[in-house]
Design a protein around this nucleic acid. Structure first.
Length: 300
DNA sequence: ATGCGACCTTT
DNA sequence: AAGGTCGCA
């Protein structure tokens, strides 16, 4: 399949976008990135001026283009958003350094599964765990995609997880205490009590309340699903990194997650989600780079 | 209402 | 020590 070329108005920084904790199934593959999403294996490469996309099973050019346009949120008016955020003192460095960092629009179930799996762990461990989960419970598909050649495994649907044994989710996938959450969430979805298809059309606050009823979903996971799958761009997921960044740079050490969300949403509105992504990525990469050499000596 | 420890496994 | 959630003081 000839790659579909998609012209870009603004650059897309693939590495921080695909490996920055929004999705967990992308790997470096030759000149670009290979990943599994929405029942297919994808390969995406790109530059400042265009994206080149292929997939298996193959898709027509218009459909592949439509997928990439949605997945990378190419219609968001990136330049205007980034220009607005760049005027904010606390965000300026982050926006300039990571111009081209994008928000993804992923599948709601894959996203929910990913962020329940992510609870209390590091990105590397999360990717390993999700890989194992998919290998053991997901449908295998043969692929010749560069970087993924051989067999890939699709994300197991809620029906599959709902009937899996919790003990196997723990041992085979390494899910630990999250096994109970994930199975519970899958059961809620299968039962029809979490209308994943309808959430995007609901207002932020309403969808948030619905998501909080799901086992394993608290404020942070709900906000991740709302931001990365439902297109609720005012979501502002507060994890350890964003908590530290906002406390250090904006609201002081006493600020609690609730205060931070409220502040971000009233200050940045529908740009809050992008603001969070810039802040998270900038702060995290800085801190990891600075902490790595020191960490070997012991506690900081 | 607010705060704190437990929770599985892996990096 | 790690991208939280839950349940109980």
């Amino acid at each position: 399949m000839e790659p579909v070329r998609i012209p870009l108005a603004e650059p897309v920084l693939l590495e921080p976008t695909l490996k920055g904790g929004q999705a967990f199934r992308w790997r470096a593959a030759g000149p670009g990135w290979a990943g599994v999403a929405e029942g297919r294996v994808w390969h995406v490469a790109g530059h400042a001026t265009h994206l080149a996309v292929t997939c298996e099973p193959e898709l027509g050019p218009q459909q592949a283009r439509a997928w990439a346009t949605r997945y990378f949120r190419l219609g968001d008016g990136y330049a205007a958003m980034a220009a607005r955020l760049r005027r904010e003192a606390e965000l300026r460095d982050a926006v300039e350094r990571w111009w081209g960092l994008r928000l993804l629009q992923t599948d709601p179930w894959e996203c929910l599964l990913g962020f329940i799996t992510s609870i209390h762990d590091s990105v590397g461990a999360i990717e390993t765990r999700i890989g194992r989960l998919c290998r053991h419970f997901g449908e295998p598909v043969r692929t010749t995609m560069p970087g993924a050649r051989g067999w890939a495994h699709l994300t197991p649907p809620p029906e599959r997880i709902a009937k899996a044994h919790e003990a196997r989710l723990r041992s085979a996938a390494g899910m630990g205490f999250r096994a109970r959450y994930l199975k519970g969430a899958a059961q809620v979805v299968v039962r029809g009590d979490l209308p994943l298809g309808e959430l995007a059309a609901m207002p932020y606050a309403e969808a948030h309340e619905v998501l909080l009823q799901v086992p394993g979903v608290g404020d942070k996971v709900a906000d991740c699903v709302q931001l990365y799958a439902l297109g609720h761009l005012e979501s502002f997921p507060v994890d350890r990194w964003v908590l530290r960044a906002m406390q250090e740079r904006v609201l002081g050490p006493e600020a609690k997650p609730r205060d931070i969300v409220a502040h971000a949403q009233q200050r940045w509105g529908k740009d809050a989600g992008y603001a969070q992504q810039f802040l998270f990525h900038h702060y995290r990469t800085q801190r990891l780079a600075r902490a790595a050499p020191v960490a070997r000596r012991g506690k900081a």
